[in-house]
Design a protein around this nucleic acid. Structure first.
Lengths: 169, 169
DNA sequence: ACAAATTAGTTTCAATTTGAGATTATCTCT
DNA sequence: AGAGATAATCTCAAATTGAAACTAATTTGT
């Protein structure tokens, strides 16, 4: 019966794999905590935070910034409205639009969420030195803006072109 | 009409968020490429790689190392078998078990996958210096083994206990 | 002025993904 | 042989998804 060293396998792994695994682990540890303590999941909290930081923000801005799908954003907003964490104020100039604001309950929830996130992040980053945390954040930030850039997309397209499949289809 | 700077919002964001977004972006760029060029998705490729690196590996080991759910691993293996990328050899001592090996097609596929991954990773990491790439890999590696450790789980449990929710339920 | 086209946001629906638990098959122990 | 444990598969119901249809309001073109 062979026993393979998990860490060793991991050491040879791809960066995307590392990122994904780490993200999944961290999130699956935290999300239930948010749901239990605050009644909303991490994604709802992110939208709430966005609204709290940008009072009056509109649907399309939330969509643009969060990068989430239209239907999804719509559902998340509805959910937050149903929980009375946010408030909707129709735009007087264009009745299709509306601005969003956090209610008092929403502000409290957001504040609790912040404390929870702080605790969760502190725990996650416990093994790193402060300087290393900064390094990590900076590196991830650079990669993210690269990945979101047009040049990256062009690169991906070029890759598509340059590979020949296992067999012609 | 307000216009919010996406990058600025991102700079204030949580680490888990950065990780998740980056992972999602990188994966959604690469996965279709794998499917189109090799006929299997990234997760199937990971299992294939595991099998190719550890000929004769058994189901439960794949489950343990990949960290994936039982049903999911079962499905992935079936899928790889159907594509004749792997081969199943029943264990002579225990008929419930079996070992897995890559077929020639599987080896070719894995090799192509490797080239594809290399290209994809090179593109992803283009904005970083080699030394920075190493730093990033090391930092992620340390975090991952922390997140998978019992101590981390204990920490999460402690967090659960120490927070009071918005209201009693 | 008014029909056509566009835009904002919501809702529906069908396809996919998921994982818990039932199931099958085998093995071990007494 | 029977009871219970174990390995892997399969089933099914619930959740998630995003494309497309839809509603409502606005703008454009004639």
């Amino acid at each position: 019966m062979m026993t393979i060293d998990k860490d060793k396998v991991f050491k040879n792994s791809r960066l995307t794999y590392r990122l994904e695994t780490l993200a999944n682990n961290a999130i699956s540890a935290n999300d239930p905590l948010f749901v239990e303590k605050l009644g909303c999941n991490i994604r709802e909290m992110r939208i709430l935070r966005l609204i709290d930081d940008h009072p009056g923000i509109e649907f399309n801005e939330i969509m643009r910034i969060s990068g989430l799908d239209r239907s999804l954003v719509s559902r998340l907003i509805r959910s937050l409205l149903e929980k009375t964490l946010i408030l909707r104020v129709n735009n007087t100039e264009d009745a299709r639009r509306y601005g969003l604001f956090t209610t008092d309950t929403g502000k409290t929830c957001r504040q609790l969420g912040r404390e929870l996130s702080d605790a969760a992040e502190a725990l996650l980053l416990q093994p790193l030195e402060p300087a290393e945390v900064e390094q990590l954040k900076a590196l991830l930030g650079r990669l993210l803006s690269w990945v979101r850039s047009d040049d990256y997309q062009t690169g991906v397209q070029a890759m598509y072109g340059s590979f020949r499949g296992r067999e012609e289809r």
